Computed example of a mutant assay.
Amino acid sequence: MRLNFTCTHGRSERGKGCHGQRPKPKGKIVTLIVAMCMTGVVASLMFEGGTNTEAFLF
């Protein structure tokens, strides 16, 4: 998940296109892995960066 959300779609009048640029993402990427059961959250793990096999099996 990125911590700096940017809209990827815009609105315009009917029949007209919406044109423009959006800022490039400059924020950190954070991964959140959560284990849940019927009673709620059992465990959670949050770390900076993307998920790979090594991080997921931690």
Rank of each mutant, 00 (worst) to 15 (best):
R14T: 09
N4I: 13
C18G: 04
V41M: 12
N4W: 14
C37I: 03
K26L: 03
G40P: 03
F56N: 01
R14P: 03
H19F: 09
G50M: 10
E48K: 15
G27K: 03
M36C: 10
F58C: 10
A35M: 01
S44F: 12
F47H: 14
M1E: 13
E48V: 15
G20V: 02
K28M: 06
T53K: 05
V41S: 05
P25E: 11
N4Y: 14
E48F: 11
L3S: 14
P25L: 12
V30T: 10
S12D: 08
V41R: 06
Q21L: 02
G49P: 13
I33E: 08
M36Y: 10
N52V: 06
L3E: 15
A43I: 07
C7T: 09
T6Y: 09
R2H: 13
V42Y: 09
R2M: 13
F5L: 13
S44P: 02
L3V: 15
E13D: 10
A35W: 01
G50A: 15
M46H: 08
M36N: 08
M36T: 13
C7G: 08
V30D: 01
A35G: 01
S12F: 01
F58K: 12
N4R: 13
V42I: 15
A35P: 00
S12G: 12
R2G: 14
G10R: 04
A35F: 00
R11D: 05
G40W: 01
F58H: 11
K24R: 14
A43M: 11
P23T: 07
T31E: 01
L32W: 03
A43R: 15
G40N: 04
R14V: 12
T31Y: 00
R11A: 07
R14W: 05
K28N: 07
P23W: 00
N4H: 14
V34H: 00
F47C: 07
R22W: 00
G49I: 08
M38C: 06
N52Q: 06
M38F: 05
T51W: 07
R22K: 15
V30Y: 09
G50W: 02
L57E: 11
